[in-house]
Structure formats: structure tokens, C-alpha cells
């Protein structure tokens, strides 16, 4: 499929558009939700310099979400802002890992956010994203290839950033190791759907939009084993979990997140902001 003058996706059948839209929702919603969760850490990180550095990563992720929503908008004829704000939880395709809250407490009222969880979640997510972007760079869909190449350029730093924190904390004192181990367990309960490709998984891969789940999981395992090789722990990855975000199954945390994120945008109908 090639770009045309009238639209990036012209010439696609309706079913192809549906497959592609489902994949784009997975990619866009992932970055959108985890960018939001990361931005809740703004001003609250363990170190001021880290606060500044990781805020760039949250912005980059929101930027990537914005590119994917743009493509999705080209397919379904909707505005990127509307797609980000107004879609209901059942229509969201993000992984459970990206929607879970940062810890106990609300972001304005004595939050007990867990930095260990933040580091582990981001390492898993970003390594998964690296594998996925590598696959998307080979996609049969050229607009997707272009966006993947752009996102991959920035992802290099994101992955390095979280890998560094992960290795440093895993190799520090006993207290930190215990917290990181607990965080690994928590993440293991929320990440099984990361590579799941949703209800059209077979069609999406048959069309060559992205590599098959098993193939990507295998690359992921190899990458993660390299990282864990620099610590005293062993990598493991779960097979299944209760909800599958790629199929529209979500937790209460997603509803809360969307409500907060839409509060102003949805407050005055048809308004420009």
C-alpha cells in the first residue's frame, strides 16, 4: 500500500481499514495512557534532575500517541483530539500495564507513588515498544512505517533511561532489591497482553502490518534476558491475565484516568481550547 495524493490510506478495503484502525488504537492508547501515568509523577520524582529528564520522556510518548491518533483520524475521519479524549473504555485498546495507577493515593492528595513500579513498568513497556517499532519499520503499510521510524528515534533514549535506572536499583541495597522484586511481580500480573494484537490478530499479521505476536515475544525475551543478565535476577514473562486490554477489557483505573483527562475538554460542547 502506498501513499496517495488524496489520503494516506486510500485504496484500502473497509475490512483492511478496520484491521489497521484496531492496531493503531493499540499503539496510540498505549502511549497516551502511559504518558499520562508518567506525567502524574511530574514534580514528585526522587530527584529534581530526574524529574526534568523523565518529563521529556512523557512528552515524547504523548507526541507518539498524537502521531498515531493522526493516522487513525485519517482512516476514520475524526479529529485526533476527539479520538484521544472521547473514546469510551470499551473502545480502548491499550495494554493493562499502561493504565494502572502509580500507587496508592491521588495525584494531588498525599500520593504514595512507587518509583520501583514506575521503573519496572517503563522498562517493560519501552522494551516492548522497541521490539514493536522494529517490526513496524518493516510494515507493509507505509504511513505506519514512517511513524515507527520517527518514534524509534526517540525511543532509543527512553529505553536507555529506564534500563539504567533498573540496573542501578537492582544492584543497590537490600531494601531497593526487595522493592524492585515486588514491582516485578506486580508488572508480571499486568503485562500479558502487551504483545497481543487484538481481535484481528491473524488478519493484521497476514496483511503484513506487523510481525506475529510469538515472533515479537521471542525478540523481547532475548532483549530482556540481556538486561537481567546485568542483575542477579531472572527474567520471566506471564502467559495470561484477567483482563486483556487489546480486546477492550480494562480496569477501573482506566475509567478514572479518562474522566480526569477529559474534564476540561468535554466541559463546554464544541468549544475551541
Amino acid at each position: 500500500m502506498e501513499k496517495t495524493e488524496n489520503g494516506k490510506f486510500e485504496g484500502l478495503t473497509e475490512t483492511d481499514q478496520e484491521y489497521l484502525a484496531d492496531l493503531l488504537k493499540q499503539l496510540a492508547d498505549d502511549d497516551y495512557l502511559l504518558s499520562f501515568r508518567s506525567s502524574e509523577w511530574l514534580g514528585l520524582a526522587p530527584h529534581i534532575e530526574e524529574d526534568v529528564a523523565s518529563a521529556s520522556i512523557s512528552q515524547d510518548m504523548m507526541g507518539h500517541a498524537s502521531m498515531y491518533y493522526g493516522l487513525l483520524g485519517d482512516i476514520c475521519g475524526r479529529d485526533a483530539d476527539d479520538l484521544a479524549h472521547f473514546r469510551k473504555p470499551a473502545d480502548r485498546r491499550n495494554s493493562i500495564l499502561t493504565e494502572k495507577r502509580n500507587g496508592e493515593g491521588e495525584y494531588l492528595d498525599a500520593p504514595k507513588y512507587d518509583w520501583a513500579y514506575h521503573v519496572v513498568r517503563n522498562l517493560y513497556y519501552n522494551m516492548h515498544k522497541k521490539v514493536k517499532l522494529d517490526a513496524l519499520k518493516q510494515s507493509s503499510c507505509s504511513p505506519l512505517r514512517d511513524v515507527a521510524a520517527k518514534a524509534a528515534m526517540e525511543l532509543y533514549y527512553h529505553e536507555l533511561h529506564w534500563r539504567t535506572w533498573f540496573i542501578e536499583l537492582m544492584n543497590s541495597n537490600d531494601d531497593a532489591k526487595a522493592r524492585m522484586t515486588a514491582a516485578l511481580e506486580k508488572v508480571n500480573g499486568e503485562c500479558a497482553d502487551l504483545f497481543h494484537l487484538g481481535k484481528y490478530a491473524e488478519d493484521i499479521t497476514a496483511k503484513g502490518y506487523i510481525a506475529p505476536e510469538a515472533e515479537m515475544k521471542d525478540s523481547f525475551r532475548k532483549e530482556m534476558e540481556k538486561v537481567f543478565g546485568q542483575t542477579a535476577s531472572v527474567f520471566s514473562f506471564p502467559d495470561a491475565q484477567k483482563e486483556n486490554g487489546r480486546l477492550g477489557g480494562h480496569t477501573r483505573d482506566l475509567e478514572d484516568a479518562l474522566e480526569l483527562m477529559n474534564e476540561v475538554y468535554g466541559s463546554v460542547p464544541e468549544a475551541k481550547w
Partner: peptide, 11 residues
């Protein structure tokens, strides 16, 4: 930050 209306405003 989370409430900012629109992707551009959020960024």
C-alpha cells in the same frame, strides 16, 4: 497537566 484540553495543550 492531565486535564489540559487537547493533545497540544497537554504537551
Amino acid at each position: 497537566v492531565p486535564k489540559a484540553p487537547g493533545l497540544g495543550r497537554k504537551l
